[in-house]
Design a protein around this nucleic acid. Structure first.
Lengths: 274, 274
DNA sequence: CGTCAGGTTGACTGCGCTCAATATACGTGG
DNA sequence: CCACGTATATTGAGCGCAGTCAACCTGACG
């Protein structure tokens, strides 16, 4: 709870502090922020961080594991809004409402930092860097959601799946983990719900990428065998002179995104939509 | 520029002040904010408010008219991210970056308020209500972009078009204008680009809705003849027992959105995606 | 060993894209 | 004001991608 006991409760001790906190805060300020943090978890697969339509209180940072946010429409029709990996924030989209607009559910063993938003907001008044950082995080979320919209608005199923793979990969790269070999925290069905595709389509496309030698995939373990060719398929119009696709260079303009899987590459079609 | 000359330059004199500003500010604070505002326009159709990849400086409120935001991918493949009507904010998604991630273009004769973001941020330190309001606006933008993602992720073309129509309608209702009869500020092609549909599809669907007696549409002038049945098509699963669709009641949970066309109704499919 | 969720594969169908032709609206100059 | 050209919008024919339905496979767990 409070940071009385030991240094372990200070954000400055956290490997992710460079992501969660602005860089320019002094130790006293860090202590003030740390005092707001409540650690949650470890949560197990399926456990909820918060539920749709319950009162809004906090935003959350993923420490380890993975989380999905899900909304259920009136008819029980459910859609996944985003996946969040270590260092990502979620819950921000609900702060202007009384209650959460979605549920957040752990995809695997997961630990999380909870920050009561009102108190964070209050603290931000006296720490300009924190205020700026909060604007920054929210603005990233907007840009991120816009990128997802772009991806979904008119890309082929294959492009969407590749975008998701590359995004998880990019997230791992930013966290100094292997960008070429990793485990997907979500099920095929989750991927489909997020990408607006049927489960069968996701499965078929992963199978097809495997057959073509672009990836290895067994269950949820992925190896990107030819990342360059993968990003090419995302970025390059087959009809146009190919912009030679360096690894992890999609959407150079948007690449500052830190928001993990959220940070989808700027989508694009092959000129011809769909 | 500054609010020296007359009252007309004060936000409190603006009909939209209830949307742009937090309700709780005193006259002095309103004056401070007003001093930051620069009026742009009138812009004519096609004129740019800002361009993709130029340095970020400000966020913008639409006073009159309409604006679209557009990103161009590496290949000149362009997509519309959003439409903004009077009272809407745009430009917020770029504040964590050095340059704008999209261009903003007037769709018709349009006037706009420009607010330099850094100065606004600075001012927000001394006006907690303003700080909160900024968080609020950004959070709406996130929720809004998420709703658009949901709409695009797996709804039929007809549902998307209806959602757009109802959204413009809802915007007019909130501004005390006729929600049943209005002009669409954007071309069919813009609608298609935004909704992830081909122009022809948009045109066909509008024609089909017309033939079915649900709307009247001539050029860009729309009359919603049966708004209840329109929103039914969005919200109701044909297979499920119909939740009788009152007008303008889609996505009750999300309906606080003020962000105009941005505030897409929570999307949903007919259980069966697509 | 049975059960059940998760994943894969196949056959078929339909929505929405493409290409192409035509119609209408809009702005401009004669 | 009308003739004209261009941009925008409509309509039709055909086809391909991805959804649906259904069967089957795999692995985790009691």
């Amino acid at each position: 709870m409070s940071a009385l006991s030991c240094q372990q409760n200070l954000c400055s001790c956290c490997a992710l502090s460079s992501v969660c906190l602005p860089g320019e805060m002094n130790p006293g300020q860090i202590r003030d922020v740390s005092a707001l943090v409540r650690s949650l978890g470890p949560l197990t697969r399926g456990q909820r961080v918060f539920s749709q339509n319950t009162p809004f209180s906090s935003c959350y940072f993923v420490k380890t594991g993975a989380v999905k946010t899900v909304t259920v429409s009136e008819r029980g029709d459910e859609r996944i809004l985003g996946f969040y990996l270590p260092g990502d924030v979620f819950g921000l989209s609900s702060m202007n409402r009384r209650s959460y607009s979605c549920s957040a559910i752990a995809l695997e063993h997961t630990s999380i930092c909870e920050l009561p938003f009102r108190q964070l907001e209050q603290l931000a008044r006296s720490i300009p860097e924190l205020q700026h950082h909060l604007f920054d995080l929210m603005s990233r979320e907007i840009a991120n959601a816009e990128n997802i919209s772009m991806l979904l608005s008119s890309n082929t199923a294959e492009e969407r799946v590749i975008a998701l793979l590359l995004n998880v990969s990019e997230h791992h790269r930013q966290r100094k983990l292997s960008p070429l070999q990793f485990r997907l925290p979500m099920s095929r069905s989750d991927m489909g719900s997020f990408l607006g595709l049927a489960v069968e389509t996701v499965s078929r496309i992963l199978g097809s990428l495997h057959k073509q030698g672009l990836i290895n995939i067994t269950g949820r373990t992925v190896v990107l065998l030819q990342p360059a060719r993968l990003s090419q398929r995302l970025a390059v119009d087959p009809d146009a002179p190919a912009t030679k696709g360096d690894d992890f260079c999609w959407s150079p303009g948007h690449s500052h995104t830190v928001a993990g899987v959220s940070g989808m590459p700027a989508a694009n079609t092959s000129g011809t939509a769909r």
